[in-house]
Amino acid sequence: MGEPDEPSTARMIDFWLGGEHHFDVDVAAAGAFEQAYGPCAPVFRELRAFLGRAVRAIVEQGVDGFLVFGAGVPTRGNVHEVAAEATVLYTDVDPVTIRLGQRILADSDRAGYGYGDATDIGTIDPAQLHRFVPGWGRRPVGVVFLGLAAFLDDATLTRTLDELYAAAAPGSLLAVDFDTEELAAHPQALAMMGPAFRMRPPAAFAPLLGRWTPTSDGILPVQRWRPVDPPAEVPDAFHGVLATRGAD
């Protein structure tokens, strides 16, 4: 894979997580964002740690198939590395990220990577969905929806989560995060996020879930969601929740 011309958020996050799948252009962009904001690496490490804890909680419910939207780089504690016995379909809309993911997973027989627009589940290749998320719509699965809510307006987000609710089988679980108003105090960093980026106050998060029901943990800063160790001292940039699909 040649050196890309534009940075990728997915590869910037890989850099912050200490991964190996990024380029000079991503390191430069990550450095610029750090200058504008600051604690990017610890914040994203806490978000990835939340993902790991949420995936383990889903597996504990007997779920062994995952559908991941906006998957980014499938390493550094991503879903198939945490759920070692599960099958996983990673999806994204960025063709460079998809090709990178496919290359990383080329030798895997239980994790695949393909195109998938979270706002239109029909864009996912049915053959990939059948292979890596067997029983989709008929048996409980884990749906991972991290890093996306901040780029969808309220109407699109609620419609998308409702469509996922309707498509998933009862007993399925959804891991989702929301961006707080943390960047409001950092206008230069906020400008770098682009016009589609939406910050929300925590009080706005629960109504966006629609029919998905949060577990008893509720919606919490990601570092305080079922922490294994004392929660890290990082800004409350992301709130996370694990929510269930009922039997209606």
Results as ranks from 00 to 15, higher is better:
G2K: 13
E3Q: 12
P4L: 13
P7K: 08
T9C: 15
M12L: 12
I13V: 15
D14N: 01
F15C: 09
W16H: 08
F23D: 06
D24C: 07
D24R: 11
V25R: 09
V25W: 10
D26G: 03
A28Q: 11
A30K: 11
A30E: 15
A32I: 11
F33N: 09
F33C: 06
F33L: 07
Q35T: 14
Q35N: 13
A36M: 05
Y37Q: 09
A41F: 14
F44D: 14
F44H: 15
R45G: 05
R45D: 04
E46L: 08
A49Q: 14
L51K: 03
G52L: 15
A57I: 02
V59E: 07
Q61V: 08
V63T: 04
D64Q: 07
G65L: 05
G65M: 05
F69M: 12
G70F: 07
A71F: 01
V73A: 07
T75D: 07
V82L: 11
E85L: 12
A86K: 06
A86I: 07
V88R: 08
V88N: 06
D92F: 02
D92Q: 01
D94R: 15
V96I: 12
V96F: 09
V96C: 10
T97D: 04
T97L: 06
T97A: 14
I98N: 00
R99Q: 05
L100K: 08
L100I: 03
G101F: 05
Q102R: 02
D107M: 09
D109C: 12
D109F: 10
R110G: 03
R110P: 01
A111D: 00
A111L: 02
G112W: 01
G114V: 04
D120R: 15
P126W: 00
A127T: 15
Q128C: 04
Q128K: 00
L129I: 04
F132Y: 08
P134C: 07
P134E: 07
G135K: 02
P140Q: 01
V141S: 06
V141Y: 04
V141K: 05
G142C: 02
F145D: 04
A149V: 11
A150L: 09
A150K: 05
L152R: 02
A155I: 13
T160Q: 02
D162P: 07
E163Y: 08
L164A: 13
Y165E: 02
A169G: 09
P170W: 00
P170Q: 02
G171L: 00
G171F: 03
G171W: 00
A175Q: 04
A175M: 00
V176A: 03
E181A: 05
E182T: 10
L183V: 13
L183F: 15
A185E: 09
A191N: 14
G194F: 07
A196G: 09
A196E: 10
F197L: 03
M199S: 12
F205Q: 10
A206S: 14
L208M: 05
G210P: 00
W212H: 03
T213F: 11
G218E: 03
G218Y: 03
G218S: 10
L220M: 09
L220Q: 13
P221K: 04
Q223H: 06
W225C: 00
R226H: 10
D229P: 11
A232P: 12
D236T: 06
G240F: 04
V241I: 07
V241H: 06
R245M: 02
R245T: 02
D248W: 13
